[in-house]
Amino acid sequence: MSNNRRAVPGIRHYAGPAGGWGALKATAIAVRTQMDTFDAPATLLRTNQPDGFDCPGCAWPDKEHKSTFQFCENGAKAVTWEATTKRVTPEFFAEHTVSTLWSKSDFELEGYGRLTHPMKYDPQSDTFRPVAWDEAFARIGEVLRGLAPDEVEFYTSGRASNEAAFLYQLFARQLGTNNFPDCSNMCHQATSVGLPRSIGIGKGTVSLEDFDHTELVISIGHNPGTNHPR
């Protein structure tokens, strides 16, 4: 087998432990890179807490909150990406053509930060240019009025907050459709059909309560510290 592997930004060989101090170091680097150092600890300590917020990338069971740290390394990174202080301004887009950005990886694009303005593609300059909110909403309304409700797909990210997703689906239902898949159900649509036909249930056969009574758990093929098994 060839040892030549495609270079992926942010991915490199690592021979150390998958958790412990290595995970803490990786979390600290993510926090330092993305967030305000003074605000970060308070934000992370509210993750998956009754008086806080759900982790945007988490499948951690909300059963009891007995620990101060109710998140894994990947969860901490997801929070830092949402709470990042980095901003992608109109000046950034003026300096980077869409063709140039198209060559970037998802990892690199997310590293630039969050958008500050609605943007509109300008084919003449091959750049995104800022538009006023009123103009952006007017354009969205113009397109929606030209389509039947079920011709529109209101796709959402699984990392969207529950509050944002709730308002979004209300808008879609008011328009007259329930066509709003998110990344989670698109991933699981295959299992919702294939698994019931093969084993009779559309998801894993293990319930959360089973873990209270088990004597041995074998985890194969993933690192729960950084890629939590769902």
Rank of each mutant, 00 (worst) to 15 (best):
Trp60Pro: 00
Pro61Ile: 03
Asp62Phe: 06
Lys63Leu: 12
His65Asp: 07
His65Phe: 14
Lys66Cys: 01
Thr68Trp: 01
Thr68Ala: 10
Phe71His: 14
Cys72Asn: 09
Glu73Met: 14
Gly75Asn: 09
Gly75Arg: 03
Gly75Leu: 04
Lys77Val: 05
Thr80Leu: 01
Trp81Pro: 00
Trp81Ile: 03
Glu82Arg: 14
Glu82Leu: 11
Glu82Val: 15
Ala83Asp: 06
Ala83Trp: 09
Thr84Met: 03
Lys86Pro: 02
Arg87Cys: 08
Arg87Glu: 15
Arg87Val: 12
Val88Trp: 10
Thr89Ser: 14
Pro90Ile: 08
Phe92Leu: 04
Phe92Arg: 02
Phe92Ile: 02
Phe93Asn: 03
His96Leu: 03
Thr97Ala: 00
Thr97Trp: 04
Thr97Val: 08
Val98Thr: 12
Ser99Asn: 08
Ser99Asp: 14
Leu101Arg: 01
Trp102His: 07
Phe107Asn: 03
Leu109Asn: 05
Leu109His: 06
Glu110Ala: 07
Glu110Phe: 00
Glu110Arg: 08
Tyr112Ser: 00
Tyr112Cys: 01
Gly113Asp: 05
Arg114Ala: 09
Arg114Leu: 15
Arg114Asn: 04
Arg114His: 15
Leu115Ser: 11
Leu115Phe: 15
Met119Pro: 12
Met119Phe: 11
Met119Ser: 11
Lys120Thr: 08
Lys120Tyr: 04
Tyr121Gly: 09
Tyr121Arg: 13
Pro123Tyr: 05
Ser125Gly: 01
Thr127Ala: 02
Thr127Gln: 09
Thr127Glu: 00
Phe128Gly: 00
Phe128Thr: 02
Arg129Trp: 00
Arg129Asp: 06
Pro130Glu: 14
Pro130Asp: 13
Val131Tyr: 09
Trp133Ala: 02
Trp133Glu: 09
Asp134Trp: 06
Asp134Ile: 11
Ala136Ser: 13
Ala136Gln: 05
Ala136Asn: 04
Ala136Pro: 10
Ala138Gln: 15
Arg139Thr: 12
Arg139Ala: 15
Arg139Leu: 11
Ile140Thr: 10
Gly141Gln: 07
Glu142Tyr: 04
Glu142Arg: 08
Val143Ile: 15
Leu144Asp: 00
Leu144Ser: 02
Arg145Leu: 09
Gly146Glu: 11
Gly146Ser: 12
Gly146Arg: 12
Leu147Asn: 10
Leu147Glu: 08
Ala148Ile: 06
